[in-house]
Simulated assay, not measured.
Amino acid sequence: MDSPCLRKISLLFYLVPFISLAQYTDVINSNRPGRAVSAYAVGRNVVQLEMGLVYEQQDDASLNTDSNIFGTDLALRYGLLFETLELVYEGSFISQNITFTDLGTMERRTDFSRNRLGLKFLIYDPFKNPENNKPNLYSWRANNVFQWKNLIPAISIYGGATFTLGDNPFYPGDDVATPRVGINTQSRLSPRFVLISNVAYDRIGTDFPEWSYAMSISHSFRDPKWSVFLEGQGFSGDRYSDILLRTGVAYLISPNFQADFHLGSGFKNDPSRIFTVLGFSYRLDFHKDKLVSVSSKGGQGGKIKKNAVKKKRKKSKKKKKDKLDF
């Protein structure tokens, strides 16, 4: 069975994944759960809060310590000036209770383990030109299986600073502000799978610079409100090195509100890490599409609008003439 109506319905169905990867979407586009960062911005004039409550068990075999950590992850994102630019704050405030097994003593450390501000800018979007990504209206399989071109990612760059305020017990001796740069990529492997990767160089110019990377793959179910993810994150530096593995779920409660849960662990014993995070994302949507006057821009659209105005004027003149003749 084939008809123009059926083709239009199929076209709308297959365009949904492409629309969902645009800068602004009708549904919230959160970096949660996990720590991997999308290549895309939230959209101009969109304010978005992403928050998580953290519990972590951390034991260090080399120091004979046991730790319980309670904390809050926070990201505040704002679409600045235009669709491809985002101002983002990321912070983690934790309270760590450390028990020194050999000494039988306890110590509490409370401060920011992550505190940074920066700008993210999209420099390449493979979905910007819809002509290059038209769906195949005659083959469901062609639109839903992996294709090599799907590996071509959207790319954004990041530039900002990490802040160490006061006497921070987690980063003793660090400067108040140190540069941080990064690259983020995002590939749509299929309509239900998205791959995100990040590379960042942090605390540049200090005695303890740090490389980090993250790679996350997410999958949405037939019920699009539910999705799952698997993520690996690595750190390499003289102060701290480890690989963390995370997995979890997200549920879309409303177009502007998402809840999530994930758990994870590290691979080292100095320290060993096991953690769980319960979070949510909420946005205030002040986005407005820019209206372009097609008549002032000319082109085919301008001609159509001009012709419509001319026809309207002709009809008005004809009505006036008919009244006079009567």
Rank of each mutant, 00 (worst) to 15 (best):
Q48W: 15
R283D: 00
G104C: 10
A177V: 10
S95N: 00
L278N: 07
D260W: 00
H219W: 14
R203H: 03
T162W: 05
F163Y: 02
Y171W: 13
R203A: 04
S265W: 05
G205F: 02
T206P: 07
K288G: 04
F121L: 05
R239S: 13
N29Y: 04
L81E: 07
E86K: 05
Q23K: 05
G248F: 03
S10I: 03
I243T: 01
P179L: 06
L245R: 09
P255M: 04
V249K: 00
H219L: 15
P169T: 00
D60P: 08
V54H: 04
A22F: 02
I69A: 08
A154R: 15
Q58P: 02
D73T: 05
G43Q: 15
V176C: 08
G34D: 03
E107H: 10
K320W: 06
D260E: 04
T101H: 06
N68Y: 12
A259E: 03
G299L: 03
R141W: 13
V37K: 09
P130E: 05
D325E: 11
F261N: 14
K306N: 11
V249Y: 02
S295C: 13
K305R: 09
L87V: 11
K303N: 09
R239A: 14
T65I: 13
N29A: 07
H262R: 09
L189D: 02
S197I: 05
R203Q: 13
N143F: 08
I28Q: 01
S265Y: 01
I253T: 10
Q57I: 12
R35C: 12
L137E: 09
P33D: 07
G237Q: 00
N29S: 06
V294E: 15
Q23W: 04
F70Q: 04
G104E: 12
E210R: 08
L263E: 02
P191N: 07
K8D: 13
R246F: 04
W211R: 15
S113C: 05
L252I: 03
G52N: 14
D125L: 15
L49V: 00
A214T: 08
K310W: 13
P271Y: 00
S227G: 11
L122F: 09
V47N: 08
Y240G: 01
N68Q: 05
G182W: 14
Q300N: 11
I28P: 11
L263V: 01
S220K: 08
I152Q: 07
L284Y: 12
N307Y: 10
S3W: 06
N45K: 15
D202Q: 13
A214V: 00
V309K: 13
T105A: 12
N29T: 02
R77T: 11
W148K: 01
A259S: 00
L103T: 11
